[in-house]
Amino acid sequence: MAHFKKRNDIKVVIADDDATTRAALRFLLQDHFYSVVGEASDGERAVELCASLKPDIVFLDIDMPKLNGNQAAQKLRELLPAIGIVVVSALSTLDNVQQARQSGASAFVVKPFNAAKLIAAVDNCIKNNPPPAARG
């Protein structure tokens, strides 16, 4: 099993149209030593950031302007097949979860979230899509 020297080896991008949610995500992730390398307030910018920064994991809110989280996830899955995608939503309906999975999400986190849920989602992404430094 792959081991990392530090969690801050894991690069994360956060995309949510709500600045308070982005700040909460950033705080919780940084508090657990993950490296937040970029933030976006819409899906289109999230895709652009991920294309240039090549993070290991991206958090995508479902309900964002320009591209919603599912649309952004589909584009990111094409651009960066190994990226871990965590979809975040206040609505945990079966339909939302299924759409997120079909769009390429690795994990689904319901708002309001807590640190345990976020870290479990990150761990799930790492387990299923280890960052390049941890591969072979």
Rank of each mutant, 00 (worst) to 15 (best):
F108K: 05
T93E: 08
L118T: 04
V37N: 04
T21Q: 14
D17Y: 09
E44P: 00
V110S: 15
A82N: 13
H32M: 08
K11W: 01
P130T: 09
N8A: 09
F108V: 09
R22Y: 03
V97W: 00
N70R: 03
K117A: 15
I119F: 00
K75Y: 01
K117N: 11
G84A: 06
C125W: 04
Q71L: 09
A73T: 05
Q98S: 11
V122I: 09
R135Q: 15
I57W: 02
I62N: 05
F59V: 06
Q30S: 11
D63N: 14
T20R: 11
C50W: 07
N96W: 02
I85K: 04
L29I: 04
A121R: 02
I57K: 01
A100V: 08
V12P: 05
K11Q: 14
L91K: 10
A105E: 08
T93R: 09
I10M: 05
A40S: 13
V47I: 09
A72C: 08
E39I: 04
K11I: 04
G104C: 03
I62F: 02
L53R: 10
A15C: 10
T20C: 00
Q102P: 01
E44N: 11
L28D: 11
D95E: 15
V36S: 07
K111R: 13
F27L: 13
K127E: 14
S92E: 12
K5T: 13
A90H: 00
E78D: 13
F27G: 01
A23S: 14
L118D: 05
Q98A: 14
L91Y: 09
F59Y: 12
F113R: 10
F4H: 15
V110W: 00
L94Y: 04
L94V: 15
V37T: 12
M1N: 11
P131W: 00
I119N: 01
L49V: 07
V122W: 01
V36N: 07
P131D: 08
A23D: 14
I14E: 04
R77W: 00
Q98G: 00
F59W: 04
R26F: 03
N68D: 15
D31N: 12
V58N: 05
V36Y: 06
P132T: 10
R22H: 09
F33R: 11
D95A: 15
S89W: 01
P55R: 04
K11H: 14
